[in-house]
Amino acid sequence: MTADRDVTAAVPEREGTRQHFDETLEQIKQDLVTMGSLVLENVRRAGDAMVESRLDLVEVVREVDDQVDQLYLEAEKLTFETLARQQPVAGDLRFLVAATRILYELERSGDLAYNCVKMLARVDGFPQHPLITPLLEASVTASCKVFAQGIDALADLVPDAGAKLDAADDEVDHMVSELFTVVGRHSFEVGLEVAIALSRVGRFLERIADHAVNIGEHVTYTVTAALPGEGHNATADEDGG
């Protein structure tokens, strides 16, 4: 809660009386970062597939998401085992509880990336459109930027990650809202089915960034014990797909 709290307290780096436990905590953190990087890469890949209408990438996105799901199961198992066997308290407890939540955020984000290319495949590719395509690309870029910031905050255990990501997320909301307006205006040109697919994709991109904001809040909790305040803008049941 206080600004001067030792940032390294959650996952101490020094070798000490609980070296094995510390290594396990570090392992879990590494698993989360690895999983986050895979998801980020896959969101970018899904973005390329949509912007360039590359249906060949749909299968690749699916395969990588399967890897993400596999990592999720392994990291979750290790986290639960550690909770059960080590009876962690204080910073260790906060980190492990946050880890179970971050795992969920990452897994859902991976699903949303795959949902994007499922939309693409359903309409047999998105047409190139002078207004829509650049906005779609900008939305993907904005969403990836926030997501990357979330993974960095996790890797570095940034104390005020929650607030920083919450602010960064506004850009994504703005882009997606633009995309939605333009797609609606030009729905006759691209066809209704494509317009609906594009608007859903916009929603998925927005949700991916929301999950990154949640990751930021979990990181803040880990480091400072501060729980997210009111205005927690993402809830699980809002996920589309």
């Binding site: 009386t17 609980r18 308290v89 204080a90 910073g91």
Partner: peptide
Amino acid sequence: LFTSPKEKATEDYITGRFG
């Protein structure tokens, strides 16, 4: 005390990183 102790010394002791 067991979720967010006020003092670093408390944290070190209860998480087993004491001494």
